[in-house]
Amino acid sequence: MTHVHVNVGLLQDKLIDLLHPDQRGLMRNAQLSRHVHTLSLKPGVFQPQGIDIHDCACVLVRGVIGVKHDFEGRDALSHFYEGGDLFLTAEIDPMYNKQGSYWWIYEEVEMILLPLKSKAWKRDNPQLASALNVQASLMAAYTYQQYINNLGLDRKSHSLNWLKSNKRLLTLVPRADIANFLDISKSSLKTFIKTVFNDG
């Protein structure tokens, strides 16, 4: 990990959005660049060896991550993170992770991490640290809601809409993973991809 001063604005914007409107002023004097770290990783399983990623809020500057889980010995892909997405390391932290969740990097990533519970961060920004701690906990609790909602939608129209909006991911993510993500068969995926590309 190295300290950086670039792309911190991206993280700052995302954290401002996360805060309650009444709390956003707390971000005004925060010097995030003194506390954040960057991480660059090649495709493959996210390996935080030697890096303390405990209780961090992250923003992905570039690249693609898929969130995978172990369900009775089988891999399941629930969602992706792409450039600009805010997410939490709690998702894969062994302390909280009962579902064998892990991050699979599909395209080389660069991410910025803010350790929400570091002593220096809490000392310099006590009120902001408290507020972010609470909002991040809430964000964690609701992270999966949207993906549950999506499973309630008609499979065909949802899949077609998703494929139209995410053509780039088709070049990076294996078809089996996309089929699992969309909860459709590989043959249905093949048909839907044809439809999407034939429609331009």
Binding site: H69, F71, E72, R74, A76, S78, A90, E91, Y96, N97, K98, Q99, S101, S137, L138, A140, A141, T143, Y144, Q145, Y147, I148, L151, N180, D183
Partner: peptide
């Protein structure tokens, strides 16, 4: 505490799918 409920949601999602 919230991780308990994250786990419930993960399981709901994975059980629906898998």
């Amino acid at each position: 505490i919230n991780s308990h409920f994250v786990q419930m949601r993960k399981l709901r999602l994975l059980k629906m799918k898998m």
